Lab assay of single mutants.
Amino acid sequence: QIFVKTLMGKTITLEVELSDTIDNVKAKIQDKEGIPPDQQRLIFAGKQLEDGRTLSDYNIQKESTLHLVL
């Protein structure tokens, strides 16, 4: 699992595989929060994550926290 922190300070827990693409992750956030993926920007280690890449491409591990910017 990974964590996604919103600017409102809310933390969302997502069940993911490290082979999941950023697209997949955004879809899971949409399922939980109702935010359309095209409005989501995910940040990790100061970098904006690109849709076609996977979590492992960015060296994101289990229990990592991503930041969601709208």
Rank of each mutant, 00 (worst) to 15 (best):
V4R: 00
V16C: 05
N59A: 10
S56T: 08
L55P: 01
S19G: 09
I22Q: 08
V25C: 06
A45I: 14
D57E: 14
D31G: 06
D23P: 08
D57I: 12
D23F: 09
F44A: 14
K47F: 15
L70Y: 11
N59W: 09
G46L: 03
P36N: 06
F3V: 12
P36A: 04
T54E: 09
K32H: 12
G46V: 03
T13I: 13
V25Y: 00
L42R: 00
N24C: 07
D38L: 04
I35C: 07
K5A: 14
E33Q: 02
I35S: 11
I29E: 00
E33S: 01
Q48S: 02
N24E: 09
Q61K: 09
T65P: 15
N59S: 12
T13K: 12
K10I: 06
S56V: 09
A27W: 10
G46M: 01
Q1A: 02
K26W: 15
I43V: 10
Q61F: 09
N24S: 09
Q30M: 05
I12D: 03
L7V: 15
N59M: 13
Q40K: 04
E63G: 05
Q30E: 09
M8E: 15
S19R: 05
T21I: 06
T65F: 13
L70N: 15
K5T: 13
G9W: 03
D38T: 04
N59R: 10
T65A: 14
D57W: 12
L42F: 11
P37G: 11
R41A: 12
T54Q: 04
V4D: 00
Q40F: 03
Q1C: 04
S64D: 15
Q48A: 08
I35E: 12
G52Y: 04
H67D: 15
P37W: 10
L18P: 07
D23A: 03
F44K: 07
L7R: 15
K26V: 11
D57V: 10
R53K: 05
K10S: 06
Q61W: 10
I22N: 02
L42T: 00
A27P: 08
A27D: 11
T11Q: 11
E63N: 10
V16H: 07
Q48F: 05
E15Q: 03
Q48L: 02
H67S: 09
L7D: 15
K47Y: 14
V4W: 01
L68M: 05
E63V: 05
S56A: 05
R41C: 10
G9Y: 04
I2S: 00
K32P: 10
I29L: 08
D31E: 09
G34I: 04
L14Q: 01
K32F: 10
V69A: 12
L14F: 08
K26R: 04
I29R: 00
G9L: 06
F3H: 03
D23R: 06
V69F: 08
A27T: 05
V16G: 09
G34H: 11
Q40D: 03
T21F: 07
